[in-house]
């Protein structure tokens, strides 16, 4: 028997690993949830979950932390996806957290709600008593994430302790925990940005229109292009102009950098991603605050 017929292409192998992780979540936890941002990574996680539990429904709700600064396209996409899959959606509102006085909105030109969503996320986890939250983060995104586990333990205060992570051997994931503690689970850990795009193409997965080149009013700030919106505090010298842009990641309107592109199909996007020399988080103002910005936010309980 020739074994050359039994080599899987790497996307199929990654898919198999991610489906295994998602099924392990459903089997090991009482109240799991998928954190759904509306970005391509969480869309791929949702697609994998639909595949892992077919022909049944995804046995966990999608949780969206709505900063109130989302692109309207993201929200419309979210609602249609939830309807198509027959999934349950839970929305945690950052605006409600601000209104309750628990957190204070940042001010100034660089104000963003990125950091505030951590509080809303933790509140939502506590309110629904989620014991596992599945996210679309990948190890290749950022250096602090290179050491993430598939099952990443969070203490009673949702904190991540990178020096005290549980060893994770073979594919034997240990999700045991005390009441109040929970896990963050990352089925896409071993994927790269290019893997995600190639998989989206292979599986013909629908995405929000923001990922494709389109015309939009934008401003230039430092070396970034930001979408013009009511949520952005313009500086005196900033004048919105019409540009042909697309987004490489979808965070909040106020922090997600666009870039000029005419990639309006998946094929063109993959060509562009293959050729690009800047990491995708290179366009995120939130990571630029300091060299360990991501590690510090993760310790606090960020996604």
């Amino acid at each position: 028997m020739s074994d050359s017929n039994y080599n899987l292409d790497h996307l199929t192998e990654l898919e198999a690993e991610s489906m295994y992780v998602l099924r392990e979540v459903a089997a090991q936890f009482d109240r799991p949830a998928i954190l759904f941002s509306g970005g391509k990574d969480s869309i791929v996680v949702t697609h994998l979950a639909a595949k892992a539990f077919a022909p049944g429904r995804i046995p966990m709700p999608l949780v969206h932390i709505d900063t109130g600064h989302n692109f309207p396209e993201t929200l419309a996409f979210r609602d249609s996806l939830v309807e198509r899959l027959g999934a349950r959606l839970i929305v945690g509102s950052v605006q409600a957290t601000i209104d309750s006085g628990k957190v204070k909105e940042e001010t100034g030109a660089n104000a963003s709600r990125n950091r505030l969503q951590t509080t809303t996320l933790i509140d939502t986890i506590e309110e629904h008593q989620f014991d596992a939250c599945v996210g679309g983060a990948r190890r290749d995104e950022e250096k602090a994430r290179a050491k993430e586990r598939f099952f990443s333990h969070r203490d009673d205060f949702s904190q991540w302790d990178p020096k005290n992570q549980r060893p994770e051997l073979w594919n034997l994931f240990n999700g045991m925990h005390a009441p109040g503690e929970h896990f963050r689970v990352f089925p896409l850990n071993n994927w790269t940005e290019l893997d995600v795009w190639n998989y989206i193409l292979r599986e013909n997965i629908a995405l929000p229109s923001l990922y494709f080149a389109h015309e939009r009013m934008c401003i230039r700030r430092a070396d970034q292009i930001l979408a013009h919106s009511d949520h952005l505090n313009l500086r005196p010298e900033e004048v919105p102009e019409m540009m042909q842009v697309r987004f490489r990641t979808l965070g909040d309107l106020t922090i997600t950098g666009a870039f000029e592109s005419n990639a309006d199909t998946l094929g063109k996007i993959i060509d562009e991603v293959s050729a690009t020399r800047i990491t995708e988080r290179g366009g995120r103002m939130d990571d630029k605050r300091s060299e360990s910005a991501m590690e510090d936010r993760k310790k606090e309980g960020y996604f």
Partner: peptide, 8 residues
């Protein structure tokens, strides 16, 4: 710790 790296 164990850190995972990717290249192709």
């Amino acid at each position: 710790d164990v850190a995972y790296r990717y290249f192709a």
